[in-house]
Amino acid sequence: MKREHGTGDMRAAKPKPQVPWLEWLAAGLGLIFALGLFGMIGWQAFNGATVPPAVTVEVEDIARIDGGYRVLFRARNGAGEAAAQVEIEGIVSGPEFKAETSRVVLDYIPGRSTRRGGLFFTRDPRSGALDVRATGFAEP
């Protein structure tokens, strides 16, 4: 980091200076990254990236918590296009009580990806029928 590398002798030196190995390495890595990104994004472009979202919900866990019950779910977008503001609705219904509905909105579910969330109920979802599904989405 000395300052005496005068600009003068830099320019006066041979017009074709030798390229240091580190430069080859950095540029080579950059090329690999660029081609890799292009390849992967290009692959997505030709593999259903424009298929509109299809969200399925799977209940993963039901647990008793203070003041009620918690249902953990996993929402999966099986199509290529991302879904925004996905509303997940869960309904607990049983023969001897009024059906209880809980909702949550997931900001985004990218294409072919999953997002997790939870719903709270006051009734025990295991005492009746539990139905959890996605009710709608917006395009991002």
Binding site: P15, V19, W24, A26, A27, L29, G30, A34, L37
Partner: peptide, 19 residues
């Protein structure tokens, strides 16, 4: 000094950006 070096520098900068 040359277009080749400019391209190499651009790739290196892109790589730095990605990392």
């Amino acid at each position: 000094f040359s277009l080749k070096e400019d391209v190499m520098d651009a790739l290196a900068a892109f790589g730095v950006g990605v990392i």
